[in-house]
Amino acid sequence: MTTEPKFLPLGDTALTVEFAETIDRATNARVIGLDAGLRDAAIDGVIESVPTFRSLTIHFNPITLDHATLTARVTVLLAHPFDAISMERTWRIPVCYDGDYAPDLSDVAEQSGLDPLAVVERHAQQPYFVYMIGFLPGLPYLGDLPKELDLPRRKNPRVRVPPGSVAIAAGLSTIYPYESPGGWHLIGRTPVSLFSHLQAPPSLLAPGDTVHFEPVDRAEFARLESLEFDQLKSLCLEPEGTA
């Protein structure tokens, strides 16, 4: 049984449709389903929607639309789940788990009671689901992490996390597209750019995609790093139907 969503106003310019307060696949599937339905419905006055773990935030023009009208439209959409043609894609993202690319690997190994090689194996052995993109342009929230690797964030967040850092914390994994502050454990680095403002769409990944991490050595990392956004994108994207 699913619970009724809550309709929460964010001021006069947005409405958050909240399905739950927790992070799980069933909730996220409802978010992604409503997002697809909303975009298909092309409601006058809706500017854009932002899918997150557990809710969909709908930004609208308050001159032409209001919360009550939008809530009524969304209620109708929820009653008739949108039968989206699956756009989910599968990616193979190369990761180098070596040396200075993995400054927290030994810490993570110690805290999880595994040896570093086992941490890498656990991290790279399973598919990840893209719950949402946020915090930074192109930054994916990937789940779910194997139970053994479920650690809290670092006590001392870094002021600078290098771009391409592959990190874990709080049951999730991510990749930092830009240099930024960050409190997650850095266990590898990818040469793949996750975001290019010159591309449409600008983000490599989208909510609903599947990601596999593929361990590579430093030589392969260097080779891939020299490729353009487009070349890397086509290398990483699995052809349809092979997933």
Partner: peptide, 11 residues
């Protein structure tokens, strides 16, 4: 801490 959700300008 909440599970990250959407923000509006002015939040």
């Amino acid at each position: 801490n909440i599970a990250s959700d959407g923000i509006a300008t002015g939040s």
